[in-house]
Design a binder for these strands. Structure first.
Lengths: 219, 219, 219, 219
DNA sequence: AATGAATGAGGGTTCATTCAT
DNA sequence: TATGAATGAACCCTCATTCAT
C-alpha cells in the first residue's frame, strides 16, 4: 500500500509529480540530517514506500543529490531580479528577499549547507558552474550598484560572500510557523544586507519589525 | 613509527598535546568532508597513526565530535569582547572580527557548518547550551547598542542570526593563503556587519580594501 | 510497441515462435555472460519487450534455464549419427562434426559451459539424464569402434570426456564470420578427434585446411 | 574464533599464507558454482571467518577474481615445457600433461571455465594478455613441431584451441579420488592430444590404461 | 603506547517476481 | 497481451569498535 505522501495526479504526469515530491522530501532530509546521515531507507519511509521503489525515480543516491543541487540552482537563478531601470542596490534587495524566501519556503530544494564533497567530481563541476551563474548575477548587481552610486565601494566577490552567508544561514535557524513569517524574514534579511551596502551619502532602505523599522525609537 | 604530524613534546603533556592535534585535525576533516563522510581511518591516516591508536585519545567517534564542539564553543566564547566603556556596536565589531579570524585560523576548531543531528541528544543539549552563551553574549551587545544608540533598532535575536550567518559562512569559502589575509577578512566582515547595524543618525565604521574603504570613489 | 526481434507469424503459432526466439536469445546471453550475470531485464531489452512480458512465456528464470538445457539436449541428441553400416569411428566423426556445427550455429541453444549448479536439483537430475543419453550415444560409437577396430583401445568414458572437451570448448573461442566458417570448424574438430582415436594400424582420416589437410608438406 | 581452515604459520608470513588459502578456496568456489553464484559470505563461511574479515585480504570481489586469474596464468605459464633438444611434439606432450595435472591438482587456481565478462575491462585486458602468453607458448611448440615433422600440418591457432579444449574441460568432469589418479589423467590427455597431432609417417606416442595403452587388444 | 586482525551493524544497489491496469 | 510500479531478499562493501599481542 503506497501513500506517496498524498501526491497522486491523473495519469502520465503522475510520475513526474512523484519524482518531484521525492526530490523535495530528500532535500528536506539532507538539509536536516546531512547527506550521509540520511539513508535511502529514511527517505523511503518518509514517503511511505519501500527502498527499492526509490530506484524507479532515482538512478543512485549520488545522482539524487545531484538532481536536487540542480533544481536548487534553477530555483536560485529564478530569484535573480532582472527588472530594468532599477539601481543596483534595489535589484539586489529584491533578489535577496526572493532568494531568502525561496530557500525557506515549503517547496525549497535548497541544500546549500551540505558538504560539496559528497558530489562526484564531474557533477560537482556542473553544480559549481551553475552556482557561479547565480553568484555572477549577484556580483553584477553589486558592481552596477558600485558604479551607479547605490552601493558602497569594495571588493565585489567579498561582498557577494557576505550576502550569501546572511541569506544561506537562514536555513540553519528558521522554522516555519514560529514567531516570524517567511515574508518577514525575506524583508528583514534584505534590509540587513542593503543597509550594510548603502554608501554614506545615500539614505538607507527601511526594514520591518525584525530590523531597522524606520526611525530609531530613541530619537 | 608514529609521526603525529610533528607534535611531540617532552613528557606527560605529550598526551594533551597529541589530543589537541588530533582534535584540530578531526575538526578540519569534519569541516571539509562532513562528520559522516569522515572515517576514523581517514583521521588516523592524516595523523600518521593507526585506527586503534586513536582510541587511546578518544572514547568514541561521537565523543570526538562532542569534544570538538565544546572546544569550538570555548573558542567562540573567548572571542566575546568584554572591554568596558565601549559602545555596543564597538564591542560587537571587535567580537565579529576576532571570532571570524579564529574560525578560519590555522588552529580553528570550528564545526559550525556541521549538522547538529550527528550529536547524541544529551550531548547536543550541552552544546546548544554553550552555543547559547555565545549567542547571548552577542545579543547582549546588540541590545546594549540599541539602548546606547549605536545600533539600529530591531529584533535582537534576528540580528544575531544575521551576524552569525555572515561570520560562519566564511569557513565555506575562505581559503588561507589566497587573495586575502585572515585579518583582512576579519576586518571586512566586521565592517559589513557593523555598517548594517549603524543607525541612520550615526557615522558608520570605515572598513578596508575589501569593503567600505572610507569615502566613495565617485564622490 | 513490441518488436520481438522480427519474429511474428500468422496466428496461434506466434506464441511458440516467440518462445523460441526468447529461448535462443536467452541461451546466447547466458552463454556470453553467464546465467547469474544475465538479468531478465537484459533479455527483455534484447528482445525489445518489457520484463513482465517475459513472464507470459516463462515461468521463472530458473525454468527458462531448464527449458534451454532441455532444448540443447534435444539438439545434441539429434546430432547423434544413427546411420547403419558404418564403422564406429565414422559414426563418431559425423556426430562430432554435426554437433560442433550445431553448437556454434546461429540457432544454437548450447549452454554447456554454464555452471550446472544454477539448476534446481530436480531439474538438474533431468538434465543430467538427458545429457547422459547423449554421452551414452557417443560412448556407444566409441565402444563399437574399439570392437570393430576403427578406434584405438582405451577407457570409453575417458575418451568421451576428451571428445566432449574438444567439441564444447568451441563456443568459448569461435566467432562467426571471422576467419573460419562453421563447416570448416566442424570438419576440423572432427578430424582432430578422429585422428586421435584411429588405431596405429589404420589409415587416419584426412582433415581440411585447419588441420591435417592430407599429406605432410615436408614429405 | 577463527580457524582459517588450519593454515597458520609462524609470524609475518601468516598473512600471505592466509591470502593464499583464501585465493584457492575462492578459486574452488568460483569454479564449482560460478563467480556470480558465489557470495563472499560463502567463501567466508568456507574459511571459517566473517565476511568483513575477507576485506583484510582482498580489495573487492572483482579484484579477488582478477588476482586468481593472474595466479592461474602464472601457474599455466609455469607448465610450459622449456626443455631444449626436444621435438615440438614432445615438448607439447609434457606441457599438456603438466598443465592438465596442475588444473585439477589440490592447489589449483584454475578458473578457465568462468565467463570472462565478469572481469573489469581493464583487468580483462591484462588477463587476456597473460593468457595469450600461454597460448603463444603452445603455438610455438606446435609450429616447431610442424617444422620438425613431429606434428601434422594445420592452422596452429586452430590446433591450440583444440588442445586447450581437451585440457580445460577436465575441470568439468574430473573428481579427485574417484576412479582415476591425477597422473593418469595428465598422461591420458597428453596421449589423446598427441596422437591427434602426430603426422601419418610418424609413430604415435603410447598412452596409458585410459587411452591407447599400446597395442590394440584386437591384434 | 601501538597495531593487525576481526566483526556486527548498516547502507546502497540489484533483481526475480507479482500486481493492477 | 503488455507494462509501469512495487517489493522482499540478497549481495557487496564500509565502518566504528574491540581484542590479542
Amino acid at each position: 500500500m503506497v501513500r506517496w505522501k498524498n501526491a497522486v495526479a491523473d495519469q502520465a504526469e503522475q510520475r513526474e509529480l512523484r519524482q518531484d515530491v521525492l526530490y523535495r522530501e530528500a532535500a528536506r532530509a539532507f538539509r536536516e540530517n546531512g547527506y550521509h546521515a540520511t539513508s535511502l531507507e529514511n527517505i523511503a519511509r518518509a514517503l511511505g514506500i519501500s527502498k527499492p521503489t526509490l530506484y524507479h525515480y532515482v538512478k543512485t543516491k549520488g545522482d539524487l543529490l545531484f538532481q536536487i543541487h540542480m533544481a536548487a540552482s534553477a530555483q536560485a537563478l529564478a530569484s535573480l531580479c532582472r527588472e530594468p531601470g532599477l539601481s543596483g542596490l534595489e535589484r539586489l534587495r529584491r533578489t535577496v528577499r526572493d532568494y531568502t524566501c525561496s530557500t525557506v519556503g515549503e517547496d525549497s530544494y535548497s541544500v546549500v549547507i551540505l558538504e560539496e564533497k559528497s558530489l562526484r567530481p564531474d557533477q560537482l563541476a556542473i553544480v559549481v558552474r551553475e552556482r557561479d551563474k547565480f553568484e555572477a548575477g549577484l556580483r553584477g548587481m553589486i558592481e552596477a550598484g558600485m558604479r551607479d552610486g547605490s552601493i558602497a565601494p569594495g571588493e565585489p566577490r567579498f561582498v557577494v560572500f557576505n550576502v550569501l552567508g546572511t541569506m544561506n544561514w537562514v536555513t540553519k535557524w528558521y522554522r516555519r510557523g514560529r514567531d516570524w513569517t517567511i515574508d518577514e524574514i525575506g524583508e528583514g534579511v534584505a534590509a540587513f544586507v542593503c543597509r550594510a551596502l548603502t554608501p554614506d551619502d545615500q539614505p538607507r532602505p527601511v526594514g520591518n519589525r525584525l530590523f531597522a523599522p524606520g526611525a530609531h525609537p530613541k530619537s
